[in-house]
Design a protein around this nucleic acid. Structure first.
Length: 568
DNA sequence: ATGATATGGCTCC
DNA sequence: TGGAGCCCCTATCA
C-alpha cells in the first residue's frame, strides 16, 4: 500500500516527495521508516518531519505526502494493529476469531487446522458400531486398490484451458453423461454454456432460457440430449442441447413480480430416473415434483425445510430410488423416504452450525454423505446404515460464504471406487511467490488429509464451483467469469492450437510417462485405468513441487509425497 | 483512472 | 422480531 493513501485524518508524517520516478521505491522505504518509528514510540502523536533524502537533482518537486503514524485496523477499528493484505499474505485482525476454523484465541496464520498436514479434522465421537455387518460393508466399500507404481502413474504435467464466455459468475457445472468432451455451465445471468473443451473454440451459449441465476443443472440419464435447469427466475427448464430450444416445466411466479417477499426461486434440483420424476425445491422450503413422461406437476408441494428458508440442494440416492437427500438454509440436511414425503416426516435430520450449501450421497455406493456448510466445515457420514446422530468427521476447510461468490460445494470424485476423494475450492488465499492465489483442494475425506491443491498464477479468482469428470481425469472449475479445465498435459498437447495453450504446469518424468503411454491403448481405456489416471493427476501435483525451480510459473502444492500413498 | 454498488447471510442490538 | 452493519471478492457502471 502506498503511504499517501492511508489515514488522512490521523496524525501525519509530512514527507517531501522528490520525484515521480522514485515514487515506488522510496515510498516503500518511507513506509518502513515510519513503521520503525511507530514501534519505538507507540501512541506518540507527535508529527515527524521526515526527509526522504533521496533527492535527485534536476527534478521538479511535487506535493508533500501525508501518511499516518497510527496503525488502525480496518476490521475492528482499533489502534495498534492492522488487518488486511500485506503483499499476498492476509493478516487477520487479532480481535476476531480465526477466519478459518472460527475459534477464538488465534488467527488464521497460526490456526492449527492450517498448520497441520491434515487440513483440519475434528474427530466425531465414535458410536461403537463395530459389528460384523459393518465389517462386511466396509469391505464392500473399500475393495483392494492396486499398489501405485509411481514410475508408471506419474505423468509430468497438468494443463488448464481457460474459457470466458459467461458475463456473470459461474454458478453450476455439469459434464455430459455420455459425451466425454462436453461441459455445461450455468451463470448468474441464467445463461447456459455448452462447451466442447477438446475443441476449445466450440462453445455455445444459450441466453434466453432463464432470466437470472441458473442454480442447478441435471441430465436425465434416459435422454442425454436434453438438460434440466432450476433458476432463480422461478422456472424449471428442459433444454435441447442441439437446438437450444427450451420448454418450461414449472413456473412458480405465474403472476409475475409481486415484490421480493413473494417471488419464488428454484434452487435444489435432481432427477429420479427410476421413478421418472424431476424434483426441485424453492427458497421457501418447498419441494416440487414433475412427471417427466407427461412434463406435468405431480401433486402439491411438500415443505421439506423450515418454512421460508431456502432449500439449497437435492440429491437422489444413486441406487435406492426411495431415498432423497436435501439441504437448506435452516442448517439441516435431511434424508427422506420418497414414499412418505410429508412435512416433518424426514427419516434423519443432520444438523449443522450454519447454512448447508450442498449435500451429496457418495456417487457409487450411495452409502456416504458429504455436506458443505458455511461454518467452514466439510462433514462426512461414513455410512447411512450406521448411526447418523453425528458426522463421522468434520473437516475444517475454508469455504466461507461471500455475497459475491457462488456458494462453495464440495464434490465427490465419481471415479474413486473407495469414495474418499473430493474436490472443493478454497476461499482464503495463500501467498504463492508473492501472489495471493485461491487453490482448488483435493481432500481425502477418510482422513481429512489435504491431498493436493491446484493453483495457477494466471487464475487469481476464487473457484467455488468444481466438478470432476465422471470418466476421465479432468477437473472443471467455475470462477467469476471463466471456466477452467484441468487435465494431464498429454491430453491437451495434441488437441489445442498454439494460441490456446494457457498453461503452465511441468514435470520431470516425461520420458517415463511417454513410455507408459506407448504401452497403453486409449481405446482400451478401462474404468480402472481411468481411475488410475484420476489419481495420477494428484500424484503429478506432488511431483511438481520438486520441479518448481526450473519452472517458476508452475503453481502446484503438495503437502508430502509419502502421505499420498497412505491410503488405508 | 477511481469509487460506488450489487448482494446474502450472519451477528449484534 | 427486525434492522443496521459487517464481510480475505469480483465484476460492472458511472
Amino acid at each position: 500500500m502506498h503511504p499517501q493513501t492511508r489515514g488522512m485524518s490521523f496524525p501525519k508524517v509530512v514527507i517531501e516527495r522528490d520525484t515521480d520516478s522514485e515514487e515506488e521505491s522510496s515510498s516503500e522505504e518511507e513506509n518502513d521508516q515510519v513503521d520503525d518509528h511507530q514501534s519505538e514510540e507507540e501512541d506518540d502523536d507527535q508529527v515527524v518531519e521526515n526527509d526522504a533524502s533521496t533527492s535527485t537533482s534536476g527534478k521538479t518537486k511535487t506535493q508533500p505526502i501525508t501518511i499516518s503514524l497510527k496503525k488502525v485496523c480496518k476490521v475492528c477499528k482499533r489502534l495498534g494493529h492492522e488487518a488486511g493484505f500485506r503483499g499476498a499474505t492476509y493478516i487477520d485482525c487479532p480481535m476476531k476469531p480465526c477466519f478459518l476454523c472460527k475459534m477464538p484465541g488465534h488467527t488464521t496464520i497460526s490456526c492449527p487446522h492450517r498448520v497441520a498436514t491434515e487440513y483440519g479434522v475434528i474427530p466425531a465421537p465414535c458410536k461403537g458400531t463395530r459389528n460384523s455387518l459393518e465389517y462386511v460393508f466396509a469391505r464392500q466399500l473399500r475393495p483392494h486398490i492396486p499398489a501405485i507404481k509411481p514410475t508408471v502413474v506419474i505423468p509430468d504435467q497438468v494443463n488448464c484451458a481457460v474459457i470466458r464466455y459467461h458475463s456473470r459468475r459461474v454458478t453450476c457445472l455439469e459434464f455430459h453423461p455420455t459425451n466425454n468432451n462436453i461441459l455445461l455451465s450455468g451463470d448468474k445471468k441464467g445463461q447456459l454454456g455448452v462447451w466442447d473443451f477438446r475443441r476449445v473454440h466450440e462453445k455455445t451459449v444459450y441466453g434466453n432460457i432463464h432470466g437470472c441465476i441458473l442454480n442447478n443443472m441435471k441430465f436425465n440419464q434416459t435422454n442425454d440430449g436434453t438438460v434440466y435447469g432450476a433458476s432463480s427466475d422461478g422456472t424449471i427448464s428442459c433444454t435441447d442441447l442441439e437446438t437450444g430450444m427450451s420448454i418450461g416445466l414449472m413456473d412458480l411466479n405465474p403472476n409475475g413480480w409481486q415484490g421480493p417477499s413473494s417471488w419464488r426461486m428454484f434452487y435444489g434440483l435432481d432427477i429420479n430416473s427410476q421413478r421418472g420424476i424431476l424434483l426441485a425445491a424453492d427458497n421457501f422450503g418447498s419441494l416440487y415434483m414433475v412427471d417427466l413422461r407427461s412434463n406435468s406437476s405431480t401433486g402439491d408441494s411438500v415443505l421439506i425445510h423450515k418454512k421460508g428458508s431456502k432449500v439449497t440442494g437435492l440429491h437422489c440416492h444413486p441406487h435406492q430410488p426411495d431415498l432423497l437427500l436435501s439441504c437448506g438454509n435452516d442448517h439441516f440436511a435431511r434424508i427422506w423416504d420418497m414414499r412418505k414425503l410429508e412435512a416433518g416426516s424426514s427419516i434423519y435430520d443432520l444438523p449443522h452450525n450454519r447454512v448447508v450449501n450442498s449435500a451429496y450421497f457418495s456417487p457409487q455406493s450411495g452409502s456416504k454423505i458429504l455436506t458443505t456448510s458455511q461454518d467452514n466445515r466439510l462433514r462426512v457420514w461414513d455410512s447411512i446404515f450406521g448411526n447418523l446422530d453425528s458426522p463421522s468427521r468434520e473437516i475444517v476447510h475454508s469455504h466461507d460464504f461471500n455475497r459475491h461468490l457462488t456458494p462453495f460445494r464440495a464434490e465427490w470424485d465419481p471415479k474413486d471406487p473407495s469414495e474418499c476423494l473430493i474436490v472443493v475450492g478454497r476461499y482464503i488465499s495463500e501467498n504463492y511467490n508473492g501472489a495471493a492465489l485461491h487453490p482448488i483442494d483435493f481432500i481425502d475425506i477418510s482422513s481429512g488429509q489435504l491431498v493436493a491443491a491446484v493453483m495457477n498464477p494466471n487464475i487469481t479468482t476464487i473457484s467455488p464451483v468444481n466438478k470432476l469428470h465422471p470418466r476421465e481425469d479432468v477437473l472443471a472449475s467455475g470462477s467469476s467469469r471463466s471456466i477452467f479445465i484441468w487435465r494431464p498435459k498429454e491430453k491437451f498437447e495434441s488437441e489445442l492450437r498454439g494460441d490456446e495453450k494457457r498453461i503452465v504446469l511441468c514435470g520431470k518424468d516425461e520420458k517415463k510417462r511417454r513410455q507408459s503411454d506407448d504401452e497403453s491403448d486409449d481405446d482400451m481405456y478401462s474404468s480402472k485405468e481411468a481411475h488410475w489416471h484420476a489419481k495420477s493427476l494428484i500424484i503429478l501435483l506432488g511431483n511438481l513441487l520438486q520441479c518448481m525451480d526450473c519452472h517458476p510459473t508452475t503453481i502446484c502444492k503438495f503437502i508430502s509425497s509419502d502421505k499420498f500413498c497412505r491410503r488405508y
